[in-house]
């Protein structure tokens, strides 16, 4: 059953130079226990989409559309309602665990705070539960670490604390915004496995935001590829990995380090393909298809807004020329 339905989400930021649209007409659905990957380059609107789900957009942001969570429109909900959902039924993990944890509070207190807030737990009970959670996320010597401050932990350990904090109330949806990007390569896989495992174990739905297609392939059931604020292709992960319909998705796949070259030793990896050009400036988007200026297949018609074309079972792409080349 559908847990989350995003319909026609638009996010506009008020700037000194006037309003700038950063998310256009984004829609997707998420079932219970389903995992969705949102993939795209920096600045494509994926973090703004995630913050919109949490109701944590910057104050300068204006929204349109609907975000239906269990049938309730979050964009229309008042702040008190959102506060009661956030941390309890909707939780988020951020990209940079170093700055996302408060440097002046102990790790135990920061995890326990969520429980005291939503579960009405007394401090001692909440700290005991925090210890169990820190154990669960694999923080070594969790009992001692309750009194530790974030600066006394490594980056990976901090992200484990963030995960413990997010999962404390067993949320229905976990939003993870680039949860491994800021970590050492050796730790990235561990954290990703941990998130995948816990999501399955606790029966949560996951929205995983990343620029890394490898991560998406490992963890998610469905993928939405975003470009310049729009979802340009979405569908089951397997279907998209089997048949990439949008030229931008194809570009992303080509730009991915191949498994053969994963040794990462200098000189052994083949030179990676890149997508030429830059992400369009959201202040002056190109007419028609936003990807057209960088697209190897763009023709005259691409200067007009592209249609949403069905590729397969719940697999769509936003492109004039789907199937016109191989």
């Amino acid at each position: 059953m559908t847990l989350l339905a995003v319909e026609g989400l638009n996010v506009t930021l008020a700037t000194d130079a006037g309003p700038v649209a950063v998310v256009h007409d984004v829609g997707f659905t998420l079932d219970r226990r389903e995992t969705l990957g949102i993939v795209g380059e920096s600045g494509c609107g994926k973090t703004m989409t995630a913050l919109a789900l949490m109701g944590l957009l910057p104050e300068a942001a204006r929204t349109a559309g609907r975000i239906l969570f269990d049938g309730e429109d979050l964009l229309a909900a008042d702040e008190a309602r959102l506060c009661s959902l956030r941390g309890d039924r909707l939780a988020m993990i951020f990209q940079e665990p170093t700055t996302a944890l408060n440097p002046v509070h102990t790790v135990g207190h920061q995890v326990a705070e969520v429980l005291m807030l939503h579960r009405d737990m007394a401090e001692t009970a909440a700290l005991a539960e925090a210890r169990r959670l820190l154990d669960m996320v694999g923080l070594p010597r969790a009992a001692e670490r309750l009194a530790a401050y974030p600066h006394q932990l490594s980056g990976g350990q901090r992200q484990r604390v963030m995960i413990a904090m997010a999962l404390a109330c067993k949320p229905d949806i976990l939003v993870a915004d680039e949860p491994t990007t800021a970590l050492d390569v050796t730790v990235q896989a561990q954290i990703l496995d941990l998130i995948g495992e816990l999501v399955r174990e606790l029966g949560m739905a996951l929205v995983l935001i990343t620029h890394d297609l490898g991560v998406v392939g490992q963890v998610t059931d469905r993928v939405a590829v975003m470009y310049a604020g729009r979802v340009v292709e979405s569908g089951p992960t397997e279907a998209i990995f089997a048949k990439r319909a949008h030229p931008y998705t194809q570009g992303l796949f080509k730009a991915r380090p191949s498994h053969a070259g994963q040794g990462r030793a200098a000189g052994t990896a083949a030179r990676l393909a890149t997508i030429p050009g830059l992400v369009p400036d959201p202040r002056s988007p190109p007419p028609g298809c936003a990807f057209a200026p960088r697209c190897p297949h763009a023709i005259e018609i691409c200067r007009r807004p592209p249609p949403l074309v069905a590729i397969g079972e719940s697999h769509d792409a936003l492109c004039h020329r789907v199937g016109e080349w191989t």
Partner: peptide
């Protein structure tokens, strides 16, 4: 700062996030 956003993501109101974090 990010940790104030984290505090809000935990469900603290703006005011509580400001005073506590």
């Amino acid at each position: 700062e990010d940790y104030v956003r984290t505090a809000r993501a935990k469900g603290l109101s703006k005011r509580a996030a400001l005073w506590r974090h």
